[in-house]
C-alpha cells in the first residue's frame, strides 16, 4: 500500500512539472511580441478610432465627447471656393491633386530615365548615384531652407540670372499664390527622384542578362529593347515606386512649411497642413480630425490592397 502511495506522489509532480514549464516556454515568444502588438493596437488602431470619434463631435480647442453627427464633414465639403472666405480645404485638396499627380509622374519618369542612363555602363556611376540620392537623407526642413533661398526672386536664381545679364528673366512662383504649389513639386521631385532612380536601377540590374542578349539577337534596337522588354519587366517596381510616392505625397507636411510657410494666404497648403493648422492653431479640432480621417481613408484605399497582395503571395 505505502509503496503505491509513494509512486503516486512521485508521479504527479514529474508529470505536471514539464508541462507547466513547456507551457511557459510555448508562451514566451508570444509574451515577447505582446508589448509591441499591444502598443500597435492602442496607439495606432485605438488612436485612429479616437480620431474618427472626435471627427463626429463638436470639439473646438479641447476634445469634446458630445456626438454632433457629421457636422465637421459637412463643413469640409459644403465650404467651397465661392463661400467667403474661400475654402482652405478645397485649396488643400486641389493642391493635393496637382502636387500628387505631378510629383508622382515626374519622379517616376525622371527616376526611370536616370536609371536607364546610368545602366549604360557609365564610368563614374559610383560617384553619380550617391549624388542623385543624397537629398533623401536630408530633412525636409533643411531642403526647404535651401530651396526657399534658391527660388527667392530677390536672392536666388532670378537675381543670379539678372547679374549674368538676363535681366528680363522673371521667376516668382514662390510668392505667387497660383504657382506656389509648383515650387513644392520642384523641391519634392528633387528630394525623392534619386531614390526612385535607385529603385529602378536595382530592378534593371535584376533583369536576366540572357533575356537582353536574346532580344538583341532578335534584332531589337536599344529603344525597342527598353520599350518592349525592359519596361514591361519593371512593372513590379513601378507599383512599389507608386506606393512609396503616393504615401510620401499624402504625408508631405514639412516641405510646405519649410519652403513656403504655407504660401500666401495658405495657398500652398496640403491636407496635412490643413489638419495641423485647424487642430492646433485655429481650435477647430473636429474639422481637423475629419480632415485626418479623409487622409487616412485615401491611404487605406491605396495601401491595403497592396499589402494584402504582398503578404498573400509570400507563403506560396
Amino acid at each position: 500500500m505505502s509503496s503505491v502511495a509513494t509512486t503516486q506522489i512521485k508521479l504527479t509532480p514529474e508529470r505536471s512539472r514539464p508541462s507547466v514549464r513547456s507551457r511557459l516556454q510555448d508562451a514566451l515568444p508570444k509574451l515577447v511580441l505582446a508589448p509591441s502588438f499591444a502598443i500597435t493596437i492602442v496607439f495606432v488602431y485605438g488612436f485612429i478610432l479616437w480620431t474618427i470619434y472626435l471627427s463626429f463631435t463638436n470639439s473646438k480647442t479641447f476634445p469634446s465627447y458630445v456626438i454632433t453627427g457629421s457636422r465637421a464633414y459637412q463643413r469640409l465639403w459644403g465650404w467651397t471656393f465661392d463661400t467667403d472666405p474661400p475654402s482652405s480645404w478645397y485649396t488643400s485638396i486641389t493642391n493635393m491633386g496637382i502636387f500628387g499627380f505631378l510629383y508622382i509622374a515626374i519622379c517616376l519618369a525622371l527616376g526611370l530615365f536616370l536609371a536607364i542612363l546610368l545602366d549604360q555602363k557609365i564610368r563614374g556611376e559610383g560617384v553619380l548615384r550617391p549624388i542623385y540620392l543624397y537629398p533623401m537623407a536630408l530633412s525636409f526642413i533643411v531642403t526647404g531652407v535651401a530651396w526657399k533661398w534658391f527660388l527667392d526672386p530677390g536672392l536666388g536664381l532670378e537675381q543670379t540670372l539678372h547679374q549674368w545679364g538676363w535681366t528680363s528673366f522673371h521667376f516668382d512662383w514662390i510668392k505667387n499664390k497660383d504657382f506656389v504649389i509648383y515650387t513644392v513639386v520642384i523641391a519634392g521631385v528633387w528630394q525623392a527622384s534619386g531614390f526612385i532612380m535607385a529603385m529602378f536601377l536595382a530592378g534593371l540590374r535584376g533583369i536576366d542578362g540572357e533575356i537582353m542578349k536574346a532580344a538583341q539577337i532578335d534584332g531589337a534596337t536599344t529603344f525597342q529593347l527598353y520599350r518592349r522588354i525592359v519596361i514591361p519587366l519593371l512593372r513590379p517596381i513601378f507599383l512599389s515606386a507608386f506606393i512609396v510616392l503616393a504615401h510620401l505625397a499624402i504625408k508631405s507636411y514639412d516641405l510646405v512649411v519649410a519652403l513656403t510657410s504655407g504660401g500666401p494666404g495658405g495657398s500652398a497648403w496640403l491636407p496635412s497642413n490643413f489638419m495641423y493648422e485647424y487642430t492646433f492653431k485655429r481650435n477647430e479640432m473636429a474639422v481637423g480630425s475629419a480632415s485626418a480621417v479623409i487622409m487616412l481613408m485615401t491611404i487605406v484605399a491605396i495601401i491595403v490592397p497592396y499589402l494584402y497582395s504582398e503578404l498573400r503571395e509570400k507563403p506560396r
Binding site: I41, I48, W50, L54, I250, Y276, A292, L311
Partner: peptide, 23 residues
C-alpha cells in the same frame, strides 16, 4: 502571425495626422 505582422506593417503607412491629436 501573418495578421499580427500585417497590422504592424500597416502602421508604417498611416498618415500620422490620424493619431496626432489623441497622442
Amino acid at each position: 502571425h501573418t495578421l499580427v505582422f500585417a497590422m504592424m506593417l500597416f502602421a508604417c503607412f498611416i498618415p500620422f495626422q490620424s493619431v496626432l491629436l489623441p497622442m
